[in-house]
Design a protein around this nucleic acid. Structure first.
Lengths: 233, 233
DNA sequence: ACAAAAGTGTTGAGAGTACACCCATGC
DNA sequence: GCATGGGTGTACTCTCAACACTTTTGT
């Protein structure tokens, strides 16, 4: 940042900066993302990833959290948020030069108010396998987000962020199978979890049609571990 | 462009956007980064990562390449460049709100002209273990870059980007040991390379004090593979 | 001949995979 | 009882790490 003095700094043309956020959840046994329908030019009536301009006095992460809260009703504590990539090619927005810092978020379906679901037709959850045409370069952003999410799940335990506080091991395995798109071996999945010691048994069972399933939750300190293990801050 | 929406977009306050670049190389058997001495307020006379403002008609990556070329004499083909993270906290630059898209680059020492080395005192290569105090939040950026570089080397073969076209396997192992800060087993390192098939033997040997070492180079298509394997484009 | 560094092979431990089997509940 | 899904154990394979050994040069 070998910048000239203050006077010089302000004279440069400045791009607009937005934070866009790919919000994942799981419902109906599908991995879904939240999209909003644009009401204005450009790309009017097309679907887009939610996002908004960065205010001058808030960090980019705060912008992302704010947008997240505006579109869902989820607070900062309940969600996993991670910066994804920054897209800044000229021409990606026909209005002006826009630099977009993309984030992705994992929210569990139980946190989502019915509101978001049955709201007007301008917001909706879409299966990642059945996406409508997207505005701007949002298809690319979503593709990156999905790749990153899958990668994360392959070597960390963040998958639990897509589940309620209490869950069964089968439910957790379902999350992994849905996101990764592959069947996993029950025994191996469980022994791996046991070794990493990220989940702990809690009182209570859930009836399932067969033998009732033990409930688990993630260890609080393990959550810290998962975040510490993050190599892409 | 004279729609009402255009007016809306441009009415927002806009942060300045810069691309900063952490340039790594290896010399004197040390991992080094390029720093430049600031000549103006703020942080006058402190060292900083090179960078500059994004021009309106170039992509962020092009900005990074341009800054790289200005500080070294390295062209796009010879260098590995990857986006690292975007830093945008308010107050990280006292002049105005600055959003910095950080990149990191790997260049081999043989590409660097002597110029960069014995230039005036305002540019220099510093061992990552003996850094001077840095301007802005550049210490944090550099820390991220180093973490990412180490991580990359642990599961990819990008280490060769820090070497000349031709190299011996011992030299490649040295790169990994220097960057990771650990000793590696010769036999295991070599058999791993053999399995991944990223290097190929070429004519010629290099005398070393003992038995002369076979020269290798990276397979061109393997280079493509390494880049394709990138999950953080 | 001997030191030094290149280069290869062997072995054992541990992780990952496939699969079989037992357990608890609802009907 | 038996279908259904939860839960556990075992045997096989493959990767990985430690280490020993051979080869080729310079002096």
């Amino acid at each position: 940042m070998d910048t000239p003095e203050t006077y010089d700094v302000t004279k440069f043309d400045r791009p607009s900066v937005t934070a866009d956020i790919v919000i994942f959840t799981i419902s109906d046994e599908q991995l879904k993302v939240l999209l909003i329908k644009r009401k204005k030019w450009p790309y009017q009536d097309m679907w887009a990833i939610p996002g908004g301009f960065a205010k001058m006095d808030e960090s980019l992460e705060e912008t992302a959290y704010r947008e997240l809260a505006e579109e869902t009703n989820v607070t900062q504590q309940q969600v996993y948020l991670e910066q994804l990539y920054t897209f800044g090619d000229p021409g990606r927005d026909p209005r002006t030069r826009v630099v977009t810092v993309a984030y992705f978020a994992l929210v569990s379906a139980d946190q989502l108010s019915p509101r978001a679901a049955d709201d007007a037709a301008d917001v909706g959850w879409f299966s990642v396998y059945h996406l409508p045409p997207l505005a701007f370069d949002h298809a690319k952003i979503l593709d990156y987000a999905l790749t990153r999410l899958r990668y994360k799940l392959e070597y960390t335990a963040v998958g639990f962020q897509l589940l309620p506080d209490l869950f069964t091991l089968r439910e957790l395995q379902d999350v992994y199978e849905i996101v990764l798109g592959t069947k996993l071996d029950k025994g191996n999945f469980r022994s791996k979890l046991r070794k990493t010691e990220v989940v702990e048994m809690v009182e209570g069972r859930r009836s399932t049609g067969g033998r009732p399933a033990q409930l688990y939750r993630f260890r609080e300190d393990a959550v810290a571990e998962v975040k510490a293990r993050r190599l892409f801050p």
